[in-house]
Amino acid sequence: MKKRLFPFVFICVLFCAVLCGCTRYELTEFFALDTFVTITAEKPNGDVLKKAEKLVKDYEDKLSVTKDGSEIKRLNESGTLTLSEEVAALMKLSLSACERTDGALDITVYPLVKAWGFTVGEKKVPSSEELSSLLPLVGYENVTVTGNAFTLENGTELDLGAVAKGYITDKLVKLFKENDVKNALISLGGNVYVAGKYGGRDWNVGIKSPFGDGKAFCGVKLSDKAVVTSGQYQRFFEENGKVYGHIIDPATGVPVDNEFSSVTVIGENGFWCDALSTALFVMGKDKALEFYGEHGDFDFILIMKDGSVAISEGIKDAFSLADENTPLTVIKRSDKN
């Protein structure tokens, strides 16, 4: 009798186990950092998602270039300030990124960003005289550091917008690790980190089409990686039929206009992915590939204006195109070294 019951009891237990084993993900969404933040975590302990939201908002209060009382705004206004340990650490890291990218990323580009109206005020094309007067203010060499005291020479101003989201992402990843959250998805307005797995598989990260059709252009399956995309296709304005994007070339003072439609950088560190996505976009294709050959500690997806794509060899097996007829080039680091 008991033996005959066993298979059915076994089936029942299996059935219940499958039901109970359904993964529990929790989600929090909110506006911060001038973007829409989405954080999903599997089986978060207690109030870890609340802690995550607080972490993001605390950093926003310190790093915002427009919020009254933020350390960065106060530094811009006074020209000299001793920063908190956390902000000073980010500033030093950011300056090292400016140096590593030979100024393609420059956190002192803010006077130009303001002149083009991309942070506050009306978007407009500045006169060449205005640009000429502002260009000397731009240059990370204008920032001097003594301990945690920072001084802005020559009236320059800072904006950490090109690196802050990546840096905060890294802090969220650390928070999740400390709270034993293994599987999570962090998206600070498309500035993404995928931790662990989703339902036992790698996370499937789409790269938005820069051609305005509202669909994903391609995708890449990843685990424990940051993914950051830079492009001019969402934040821009048109004047006299010409399109001006929000990423300004620190060397020329005008919006970057090269062969790239978007640049996606993939790596383990959110800060560097954020910094490099902007820097490579500014560099243009030849310099960006040269930089990859020299450094190579990241992967990339370059979507060109002509609709073709170039990817680094490290992601070729995880990469897929929405349209398989899209021209695709796989770049080997050894070819560029």
Binding site: E29, T38, L185, G190, G206, I207, A216, T264
Partner: peptide, 24 residues
Amino acid sequence: VCIPHKLVIKAVNSQKDDFDVVTG
């Protein structure tokens, strides 16, 4: 998303593409 007006339009439950998240 419209940040200044805090407007969000998003899919309910199932999404039309196969991605868990989209960057860009």
